[in-house]
């Protein structure tokens, strides 16, 4: 294998890891956005909050409990916070003009960020040595493949498969699909939207934290500024993949991850982020419903 090809493949692998992390965060986001059409601006700051909790739990219980277990606990906590936010800040205004719950979400994001800052400070905190990701690597010809580069996409893939199964083969999934299409009629035939919707927020928060834990482990630090940036990236990935599609979120994340890696390697790290957005805009211009989305006919 020549050097150029090795370098290229290295970037692809990096891109896939990073992309798979985006996928995780996006899947969490996709739950609320896909089902309720609500741009949950609080998603990022919620998962950052949850990831901070995971961090603290691990510091306190270091070594005694498997960190992933603690991450799950933190995820559940964040999920519960998500449900509370839904009940207090979104549900009362669900029927208003679209922008109203969105602005409320902005407000919640700000509150969460402030709480995080008050508890954990404004500086970035190191996430090294928290052993979420497997160590080690192996050689594939000239290519050095880190174990974590396989682990992360595998976890992401597993999550998508599980979520897709839940959506298509469980009662909860049936209810969710009905609410996604027509929440008023769903209510009428007895689908308990006031039970299902909070659960969707719970899942969104939980999956977000799982993604957040992966993200911070991969990059080695956590900071309160990640919140809104994360929300926007998740939103972008979901729009690219298609609103309401988990596979869309998965592949959308991968595409963005690889694109960013390529841009970073061949154009310059400065334009990494920008490239991702350019791709999304271009794709959406030609296919407004995203890669896997389906057209929803507007009823007049």
């Amino acid at each position: 294998m020549n050097e150029g090809l090795t370098y290229f493949l290295q970037q692809v692998i990096n891109g896939l890891s990073c992309g798979a992390i985006y996928s995780m965060i996006a899947i969490g986001y996709s739950m609320v956005y896909g089902v309720l059409g609500l741009i949950n601006f609080a998603h990022g700051d919620l998962y950052v909050f949850g990831t901070f909790i995971a961090y603290s739990l691990i510091i306190v219980l270091s070594g005694m409990v498997n960190p992933w277990l603690l991450a799950i606990v933190a995820g559940c906590l964040a999920g519960c916070v998500g449900m509370v936010i839904e009940r207090l800040a979104y549900r009362p205004i669900r029927k208003a003009n679209r922008m109203v719950p969105m602005i409320s979400a902005f407000g919640c994001a700000a509150v969460l960020k402030t709480i995080s800052q008050a508890v954990w400070g404004p500086e970035a905190i190191s996430f090294e040595s928290l052993s979420f990701l497997p160590e080690g690597s192996f050689m594939l010809g000239n290519l050095q493949v880190y174990n974590r580069a396989l682990f992360i996409p595998a976890v992401s893939l597993a999550v998508v498969i599980i979520m897709q199964y839940i959506l298509n083969h469980t009662k909860f999934g049936l209810g969710t699909r009905c609410i996604m299409q027509d929440s008023a009629t769903s209510n009428l035939i007895g689908v308990p939207s006031d039970t299902i919707i909070p659960l969707i927020y719970f899942l969104g928060g939980f999956l977000g934290v799982m993604g957040g834990v992966l993200y911070c482990s991969y990059y080695g630090y956590i900071s309160i500024d990640m919140g809104m940036l994360g929300t926007i990236k998740a939103w972008a990935v979901v729009m690219l993949g298609g609103k309401g599609s988990f596979w869309g979120a998965f592949f959308g994340g991968l595409v963005i991850g690889v694109a960013e890696a390529m841009a970073g390697a061949y154009i310059g790290t400065a334009y990494r982020d920008a490239v991702g957005y350019i791709i999304i805009v271009v794709v959406l211009m030609f296919r407004p419903t995203g890669m896997f989305g389906h057209k929803k006919v507007e009823k007049v």
Binding site: L88, A89, P92, I93, A96, N97, V100, P101, I103, S104, F106, G107, C108, A109, A110, V111, K113, T114, I115, Q117, A118
Partner: peptide, 20 residues
């Protein structure tokens, strides 16, 4: 100063709930 953003957020939420 620390709580500025948070307070702004609370104001937003209350505003949306009571007087959008």
């Amino acid at each position: 100063a620390l709580y500025r953003i948070g307070l702004g957020g609370i104001i937003m939420v209350l505003c949306m709930l009571f007087r959008p």
